[in-house]
Amino acid sequence: MSAVAPRERRILWVIAIPMALLALSAVYPVFFALNAALKSRKEFVLNRFGLASSPTFDNFVQAWTRSRLSDYFVNSVTVTVGAVLLLIIVASLAGYALAVLRFRGSKLVFTIILVSLMIPVQVVLVPFYRTMIALDLVNSRIGLILAYTAFFLPFSVYLMTAFYARLPRELYEAAQIDGASLLQVWWHIMLPMGKPALITLGILNTLYCWNDVLISLLVLQDNRTLMVGIAALRGEYTTNVPLLAAGIVLAAAPIVIIYVVFQRQIVSGIAVGAVKG
């Protein structure tokens, strides 16, 4: 829709004003949290909305040390990195098998993996928790990594299968004729070739794992992830808003940075899911 009449152009300028206000509302709450985190408790009570007059990092220090957010942060980083790596490996292997190698029943396997999308964790909450107990995976970070991989896998397998199916066969056929083993073909060819899709998966799954609360609430009970820690902080410090705000900022910062850096991949990844890749 390129050629817009001058009158319509003027209308669009007018419409941009409420749209800009909406955009402000989309970033304001995070700005509010950042601003509150920089205030002392007293200043926040006296002046909620104004800019922090003498910014202090005390709240961050206190949240990081006394409220154990540093431990939770390490937990979240560990399980997120572990789950994202495992998701990439498992999805890439499965995509290679389903799209390129194919075998009797590969269509059935693909369908089973996709149908599991209908089974979110709430639907299996009780038996899932029992399974974790039976496998001795409660309070285990490896348990949480496996659970994240199981629950975020279907979209990843779908994307890798579709991506590998579109690669020109010449890329890997030559290697297979040369007698390279399939595992070598996967490692030396499919994994590097899949990079664009794997990067998208890596970023989206980082968001899902980092942001999750329900699965980690069930699996890590003594040893919290950051989001569960923030939820608890919210309950404990109802009156100390600046401390809570500092925790919120620390927990959101990695995601905000990832969004600013990888905005293009995130946006196109969402679009791929919506309108087939």
């Binding site: 499965a94 075998f103 590969s106 089973i112 599991s116 299996v124 038996p127 899932f128 629950f151």
Partner: peptide, 23 residues
């Protein structure tokens, strides 16, 4: 090929499909 797809299938089966029936 079946071996390659096994990790994905196993995770989905153990943590989602079997629990659905169990539930």
């Amino acid at each position: 090929a079946l071996f390659f797809v096994l990790p994905a299938l196993a995770l989905v089966t153990i943590f989602r499909i079997v629990p659905l029936i169990w539930g």
